[in-house]
Design a protein around this nucleic acid. Structure first.
Lengths: 156, 156
DNA sequence: CACAACTATATTGTACACAATTTAATTGTG
DNA sequence: CACAATTAAATTGTGTACAATATAGTTGTG
């Protein structure tokens, strides 16, 4: 029977390698580093790539809807989207029916990038050293975890 | 039999929710957000907390050794450590035997913080909605993933 | 229709993350 | 011992992440 209040147990719990948070954090950063050289060929950063993934699915959407999809807000997205605009990949224009909204649309160049990006995912999947089944399993576990954490945040 | 080259399969693979990278990224950000209010009470950020976890295990170490442990470099650590110094939690001093090295030592205040931080991990574990077994399992899967990714980075 | 409340995005400021470069100290070689 | 190569940190510059605030447009209510 473990007693969490003993100094030994407390030290264990404070060991960085035993904390899921750190595994998550370092694995996420490693993943970003793995993407970096592949995305550099397309002159994209990893968060920019995520935004494009969302837009390739469906564009002509608001900043907010991208933010909901990616769990980020305008403070992050506005400058990021301006960089994508400067790269000529998207267009930003105020909605006519509600000028508070900014509609993000892919340019032809932005649409064309999709086919070039298609190579990336399989290469990453290979770098993980996991089988497709393992990847799917880990993916759904992480989504469950994320959902729990977010729910605890909203209603603590 | 799946053929990855069909437009359908390609669209699937480009769906952001199906990509492990995004699950990892968003779960990691959610985790950081969960820690934020708890760490705010100690006036710490999440990366600062990670550095302290390493130091609580063993202090009197170089910047580099902290970096190896946390997979980060001096560009990130130098300013972070200066902030911890300003908070009075650590001391930074050049090693006598090799003045290129900077030795990081916990102050008394920095050591005292450990007991206050002990509450945090159990609270996070609770927010994940996972059992201890599930947490350990996910943790080791993520460490394996990280190792694979880093190995592929070094020797591509 | 005036006007408060709300909504969508933008801006500002702090703190990473990380590549690239610089600085200073140390080590290996002739 | 001189000096090139190496090493450890620090610095610089770009790109997020995110809280807090500001701005501008819209909607609901009397």
């Amino acid at each position: 029977m473990e007693n969490i209040t003993t100094p030994q147990a407390s030290a264990k719990v404070l060991n960085v390698d035993l904390q899921l948070c750190f595994a998550l954090y370092s694995a996420s950063l490693s993943m970003t580093k793995t993407y970096k050289p592949l995305l550099a060929k397309l002159k994209l950063t990893y968060p920019q790539y995520l935004v494009l993934l969302v837009l390739w699915e469906k564009d002509g959407v608001t900043v907010n809807s991208i933010g909901e999809r990616l769990f980020s807000d305008s403070g992050t997205l506005t400058p990021l989207l301006k960089r994508l605009e400067k790269l000529g990949l998207i267009q930003r224009q105020r909605a006519i029916e509600d000028e508070r909204k900014v509609i993000i649309t892919l340019t032809e160049q932005g649409k064309l990038l999709q086919s070039q990006a298609a190579d990336i995912h399989p290469q990453i999947a290979c770098s993980t050293g996991c089988t497709l089944t393992e990847l799917k399993e880990l993916n759904s576990q992480l989504i469950l975890l994320r959902t729990s954490l977010i729910n605890k945040l909203v209603t603590p």
